[in-house]
Amino acid sequence: MSERRTIFPGWRLPLLLLAPQLLLTALFFLWPAAGAIEASLMRGDPFGLSARFVGLDNFTELFTDPLYLAAVGRTLLFCGAVSLLSLGLALVLAVLADSAIRGRAFYRTALIWPYAVAPVIAAVVWILLLHPQIGALPPLLSRLGIVWDYRLDGTQAMITVILASAWKQVSYNFIFFLAGLQSIPAAIVEAARMDGAGPLRRFWTILFPLLAPTTGFLVTVNIAYSAFETFGTIEALTQGGPAQATQTLVVKVYRDGVVNLDLGASSAQSVVLMAGVMLLTLLQFRLLRRRGDAI
């Protein structure tokens, strides 16, 4: 961790300055996290009158529950598809925007504004595109012989939530890829061009390897995004249905805990998710450090 040479003396003022942040963190982050861990080790009686310590029973139950394991697999598939789709499209658009000589500012603006679209609004946009009754695309799909109804067909529901979630994330990735491309010295690319390397070859041998730190960082951000922030998109589109076909882990925590009030199971799921985020965050900071930045 890097440090300043010049500092102010004293320890009362800095602690006072830190007090609001520490208080908020303790009250709304650490205390609830501890609460979740405690609740995950307890089980209430059917009447909710008392709870007793059951050790890791909730976790054993969780990891032997085929419904939970199915949700884990589904979440992995969902995160992988959303990340791959939004990263791939963003990378293509960033490379194109970087190579456009005229109109670069226009394209940048045209691709940046979707950053502000809420996950729930992304769902509304995709309802208008894919809803079996009011959507713009299902009539075209039916001409191809595809009966489209994501409210009844689990696979189609999964495709719908993946498209809506990836659509919303493209602009975030685009901003980072474009910044990454613009920090690559033009001389390197120019030298390759002089050696007769075509645009595709230049991309795979120079741009893509030099973008690796940005890509690595974005992969972790996209996994975290698709795992957690897509809750609104999925709730507005499918509520996790039909028949749990789009129930990712976060939707399941919400359904089990808030809707069905199964606190022990929900807390155990929360703790598993916390472990997941912790792993992702640590990975992210390792990648950041590799980018040569001091944390």
Partner: peptide, 10 residues
Amino acid sequence: MLPVEVRIIP
């Protein structure tokens, strides 16, 4: 490491 989505109920 603790987004609101993972600590909903507590």
